[in-house]
Write a protein that binds this DNA or RNA. Structure first.
Length: 742
DNA sequence: AGCACGCCGACT
DNA sequence: GTCGGCGTGCTC
């Protein structure tokens, strides 16, 4: 008897593949799902190699047998599987966890493991059969049913029974007589809640757009990466739509990645209006059965355009033709839980794997993409004009150091109040932006100088006036506001650091006639976001106050004033991307102002008007910003000049965490030694946020001039940390190409 | 991640 | 006397 062996990626956070023996006669290969015994459990894994005549090298002595083969064709196709394997290798993440990204939870999770497959929802449609011969005499009920069906044509069974007032039995007899046929049709679980977009035709493109489309169309059928740099309002979306239509015309499909699609229902609507029912929309807010349904339909090729958030980069596309990443600079493309992949980078990998062009679009490209364009790894396409010749908004800086303010907290400069009043009086709308939610970001005791800190985290509580609670923004714990300072007992606690709630309250005092609403994480639970957006668009509100949520891709045609209250707020972050993020955010928010017949005005209030991120945003000069920023990164040894990896160790016992982190640092230093200056291990140190949720946090930064050298050092120490634990009570995680340093 | 095994406190 | 707390170890 000869056995066959396969290697299986099992959905557990463990390194390595697992070898299983196949039952006699079972035919499987890469991409098939199998149910396997795993310790005391039974899990669903995906075959990644085999069948082999003998256990592959590295297999243990005891090998268990596959319980069941679940597919008769690969559930996972080759390209996504290869992409998952790339993720496992590049991010040094467990293979099973990476392969798990490819399947909807229903096909790999517990329900599936217990053998319950998702049964498609079906609708039964009754079709009248043309009377071939004399139907004979029919009872009143059957006759009525037939008459109704003849008059109305094919209809859902439930509708027929309702309308003709007949029972299930009557219909069954009609079917038996061959007078009607019943077709079972799958009902797509509709993530659009039945909304149908009015069809929309492509507008005439401007010369620059046409040139971009021509270049992109010529690249179909092979891999090439593009950076499409287009100022706000330059019509990037029309370029995406045109190249997607070109791919569809070749019988190919298209993958569109967008940041936080849940926040931009408009974009999805636009794609559906142009491309119709073949558009799938994917994001984490979708209910699991709808997701599963869509996954199956994409896999079958019924849905040929996928618009989705970062996880959609793994979508099971049939005959992929093009990949688009909109707002490629957005941080949300980076996943902050394991596997910590970056969807934009993976899109480029996938494009190479499947030989299709990849288009990165942005008004404010990331330094990484900009550098890649400079190195010739990406082809730069520029859109410099705005559609309908909309002028760029006029951006002015208000120097808070010298400008009088209308309120004691200095939230509103006098010029801003004047501008707001003017806008409201003239029937226009305004947006105010402050990237800090809550009422006050901390309470300060004027007697002893202490602040009120969360007991579980090393941050101050934020005062939320509306909820009348102190809230920790890291662990969501809340507490009552103390009457007296917890440290010294004096009744001297004062609100410090204004947030959006306070802006709302203050504005109501300054402009009592204005209708004001606030949009931040606290006011947009559930469907509230869409309601707010609608109300603002219908002009039931004059001023919308918000955090960065208000900056994201919404189109408000009547907004002619944008006010940024504290532009430098993001610059204080201990993060080498702080300036880049600030520049991008300011540019994006400024783009909300203005319309065809009115240029719009942007007032940027700041205490640091001379900072280059602010100056370049004011001047609409992304190229100058990028050149300064990339130069600084070079000089300071940060990406894109180098490559980073960040280890983070956490645990409840501070000393143990510190000790474990230092031990890991030692191992990394040893591994890096052969690379001399090529790889640098920075000393283990407490994270900027030292404690979250009772867990102390230490981190180790590793930097490599070459990606390959860095990767080898990390891989060399992998056995030490890949279990996710350094020692008892100390967890560790690795973040390759980290975006968050907190 | 689960899940079992194992070794110490308050309960039917 | 047991139920159950979560620390530790293992999973082809």
């Amino acid at each position: 008897v000869s056995w066959a062996y396969v290697q299986v990626a099992v959905p557990v956070p463990l390194d390595g593949h697992f070898t299983y023996r196949l039952p006699q006669g079972a035919g499987v290969g890469r991409g098939f799902r199998v149910r396997v015994p795993f310790g005391p459990r039974k899990l669903i894994g995906v075959v990644t190699s085999g069948p082999h005549p003998a256990p592959p090298e590295g297999s243990p002595a005891t090998i268990r047998e596959v319980i069941e083969v679940l597919d008769d064709a690969p559930a996972v196709t080759e390209a996504p599987l290869a992409l998952a394997e790339f993720v496992s290798d590049y991010y040094l993440a467990p293979p099973g966890e990476c392969v798990g990204l490819l399947l909807p939870p229903r096909m790999t999770g517990e329900a599936a493991a217990r053998g319950r497959e998702l049964r498609p929802r079906v609708e039964e449609i009754a079709h009248p059969t043309p009377p071939g011969e004399d139907p004979g005499r029919l009872g009143a009920r059957m006759a009525a049913a037939l008459a109704w069906l003849d008059a109305h044509g094919p209809a859902a069974l439930s509708e027929l029974r309702e309308a003709a007032g007949v029972s299930r039995e009557v219909v069954r007899r009609l079917e038996a007589k061959g007078l009607l046929t019943i077709e079972a049709r799958e009902i797509p679980r509709d993530p659009f809640h039945g909304r149908i977009e009015a069809p929309d035709a492509a507008p005439e493109l401007m010369a620059e757009q046409r040139a971009a489309v021509t270049t992109l169309t010529a690249s179909l059928g092979r891999f090439e990466g593009f950076l499409l740099r287009g100022v706000t309002g330059s019509g990037k979306t029309e370029v995406y739509l045109a190249i997607i239509e070109a791919a569809l015309a070749r019988g190919e499909s298209a993958l569109v990645l967008v940041p936080e699609i849940a926040l931009t229902p408009q974009l999805a609507a636009r794609f559906r209006a142009r491309l119709g029912e073949r558009v799938a929309v994917q994001h984490s807010g979708l209910d699991p059965s709808a997701r599963h349904e869509q996954w199956l339909r994409i896999r079958r090729g019924e849905l040929s355009v996928v618009v989705g958030a970062r996880s959609a980069v793994f979508a099971p596309m049939q005959r992929l033709g093009v990949i688009v990443i909109d707002e490629e600079h957005e941080a949300s493309f980076k996943q902050e839980t394991s596997p910590r992949y970056h969807a934009r980078d993976l899109a480029l990998v996938r494009g190479r794997l499947e030989s299709v062009p990849v288009i990165l679009g942005s008004a404010t490209p990331s330094c990484e993409s900009w550098a890649n364009a400079a190195r010739g790894k990406l082809t730069l396409l520029s859109l410099t004009g705005r559609v309908q010749e909309r002028p760029m908004p006029e951006v002015e800086v208000v120097d808070l150091r010298t400008t009088p303010c209308a309120d004691p907290e200095r939230l509103f400069s006098e010029p801003l109040v004047v501008a707001l009043r003017e806008v409201v009086d003239s029937g226009r709308q305004a947006i105010l932006f402050l990237n800090r939610r809550g009422f006050a970001s901390f309470l300060l005791c004027h007697a002893c100088g202490e602040t009120v800190e969360c007991g579980a985290c090393s941050v101050t509580y934020t005062w939320h006036q509306r909820r009348r609670r102190l809230v920790c923004h890291l662990c969501d714990q809340t507490r009552a506001r103390p009457e007296r300072c917890p440290s010294c007992g004096e009744p001297a606690l004062h609100d410090m650091g204004s947030g959006t709630e306070q802006v709302e309250e203050r504005l109501a005092q300054l402009l009592p006639e204005a209708r004001v609403a606030r949009m931040d994480r606290d006011t947009t639970r559930g469907r509230a976001l869409e309601r707010l957006l609608h109300a603002f668009r219908r002009h039931e509100l004059d001023v919308l106050i918000g955090t960065q949520m208000v900056a994201k891709g919404h189109d408000f045609p009547n907004v002619t004033l944008v006010g940024v209250l504290l532009a430098e707020l993001g610059l204080g972050f201990p993060d080498f991307r702080a300036a880049e993020r600030t520049f991008q955010l300011l540019t994006q928010i400024a783009g909300r102002a203005g319309r065809a017949d009115h240029p719009g005005r942007v007032l940027i209030q700041t205490y640091t008007p001379e900072h280059y991120a602010i100056r370049r945003a004011v001047g609409h000069d992304a190229l100058a910003f990028l050149s300064t920023e990339v130069g600084l990164r070079d000089a300071r040894g940060f990406p894109p000049a180098t490559h980073l990896a960040l280890f983070r160790a956490t645990g409840q016992d501070r000393d143990r965490v510190a000790r474990a982190a230092h031990a890991l640092e030692g191992a990394l230093l040893t591994a890096a030694a052969p690379w001399a200056e090529g790889v640098r291990v920075f000393p283990a140190q407490p994270a900027p946020i030292e404690r979250i949720n009772y867990r102390w946090r230490y981190q180790i930064l590793v930097r490599g001039g070459q990606r390959s050298a860095l990767h080898r050092v990390l891989a060399a120490t992998r056995p030490l940390w890949s279990g996710g634990r350094l020692e008892a009570g100390v967890r560790v995680a690795l973040d390759v190409d980290p975006h968050s340093f907190l």
